[in-house]
């Protein structure tokens, strides 16, 4: 536990006054335990329409666990999770049965993992990977599926002459673009990115970040981005949550977190990385 008595408390700001639209993502009181490890402890996540929220922290801080909960891959031990869309408004997604949960996930949430093996079938064609996503919605016409895959790959800036190559023969940067195309195929309200550029070399990383930035600007998507890389966070995120030992220790505007961190741990993290 951090000793909070010896330092000023994190600032508590007023509730929003000028922004009148409600958050599109509202997850309150998330808890998740794996065996004896409390991975996520009393975490609230709120993201507003069109906003990029970053989650930073070192390995084991619980940031990826939060993302898995938000992706409905795992059940929280406690907490509620609301997505404010016309269909889902007021519905706690954790309370849904698993079939409905899966359906909600497919129709509303896109995800890009650090490890493309988690998100893609490496031996299918790239276009097939995306078409598969559309098949889940009941679409069966070959021409429609192919056109949708093409469009999705194209906005992800994937070279279309390679759309029938399987991901396993593609470079890391290309694999991330296929994941992104798959994530965007059904126009999700929420895009989750788990270390999307970690492991790519720096120049490729910059290009993938640029694609994400463009898409975000053009589509006004709400994005929640997990990364330990403060450069990535600085490039993409509007606001940042800092996690440690499963808890949120500080949150704020990205530039404020990086330039005037209030919490002792955040100060350490920022100074270690810059």
């Amino acid at each position: 536990m951090l000793d909070t008595s010896s330092r000023p408390l994190s600032p508590r700001f007023e509730p929003p006054q000028l922004v009148t639209s409600p958050p599109i993502v509202r997850a309150i009181g998330l808890h998740k335990r794996y065996g004896r490890v409390q991975a996520v402890a009393d975490v609230d996540v709120e993201a507003y329409p069109g906003e990029v929220l970053g989650i930073v922290g070192e390995s084991g801080s619980g940031k990826s666990s939060v993302l898995r909960l938000l992706n409905l891959e795992e059940q929280a031990d406690s907490g509620t999770y609301l997505l404010n869309t016309p269909v889902l408004e007021g519905q706690d997604l954790f309370a849904l049965d698993r079939f409905r949960r899966r359906e909600v996930q497919i129709m509303n949430i896109g995800v890009v993992y650090q490890n493309p093996h988690l998100g893609l079938r490496m031996r299918f064609t790239s276009s097939g990977n995306i078409a598969e996503r559309l098949l889940l919605t009941g679409e069966r016409t070959f021409a429609t599926l192919r056109e949708a895959a093409r469009e999705s790959l194209s906005i992800s800036e994937f070279p279309l002459n390679r759309m029938d190559d399987p991901p396993r023969v593609l470079s890391g940067g290309m694999q991330q673009r296929v994941q992104l195309a798959k994530a965007l195929a059904l126009r999700p309200v929420l895009l989750l990115l788990d270390e999307p550029t970690t492991g790519l070399d720096v120049s490729v990383q910059a290009l993938v970040l640029d694609t994400l930035k463009r898409l975000q600007r053009e589509r006004h998507m709400t994005i929640i981005l997990v990364s330990h890389d403060l450069g990535v966070i600085r490039t993409l995120a509007d606001r940042v949550m800092v996690m440690r030992h499963g808890r949120v220790v500080e949150q704020g505007l990205t530039d404020q977190i990086l330039e005037d961190p209030q919490d002792a741990y955040t100060q350490q993290l920022v100074h270690a990385k810059l």
């Binding site: 700001f13 929003p16 606001r239 505007l253």
Partner: peptide, 10 residues
């Protein structure tokens, strides 16, 4: 003292 999202809007 404004909320972060209000500052972002401004």
């Amino acid at each position: 003292n404004a909320a972060d999202v209000d500052i972002a809007l401004l």
